[in-house]
């Protein structure tokens, strides 16, 4: 299996909804605190859906529950928000834009 996963962060309906409830609200925290992985990768990581994994990038790490999703092998998706931003580095390559999409991530089961 691949050593590194590519992280994509992005909007979801629930994340948007949670923002209206407030960034401290349980809705918002729930909506932004999971990672999507495809079933094949879940199997090769030897974990099950719902289990927590540790995600590690060169910028930081975070522990999140796994959601199975229809995404390509080798990709991770986390809704934009504070959890995802533990992993996103501040390097912008002279553009102002950090790598909200494309961070390389190591995943290890807990």
């Amino acid at each position: 299996m691949k050593k590194f996963f590519t992280l994509i962060t992005g909007r979801t309906k629930k994340q948007a909804h949670g923002l209206h409830k407030g960034i401290g609200s349980p809705d918002y925290i729930a909506a932004t605190s999971y990672v999507e992985i495809c079933p094949d990768d879940i199997a090769s990581l030897g974990i099950i859906e719902g289990q927590k994994v540790k995600l590690l990038s060169e910028a930081g790490s975070v522990e999140l529950a796994v959601h199975s999703a229809d995404i390509p092998i080798g990709l991770l998706f986390i809704p934009m928000g504070p959890a995802a931003n533990q992993l996103v580095g501040p390097e912008t390559f002279g553009t102002g834009m950090p790598s909200f999409k494309g961070m390389q991530i190591k995943v290890s089961p807990l």
């Binding site: 923002l19 960034i23 932004t32 910028a59 928000g81 931003n85 501040p90 950090p98």
Partner: peptide, 12 residues
């Protein structure tokens, strides 16, 4: 706006 949650941790 809410940069505390939308910026990378090192900036926030």
């Amino acid at each position: 706006s809410n940069p505390a949650v939308h910026f990378p941790h090192a900036a926030a």
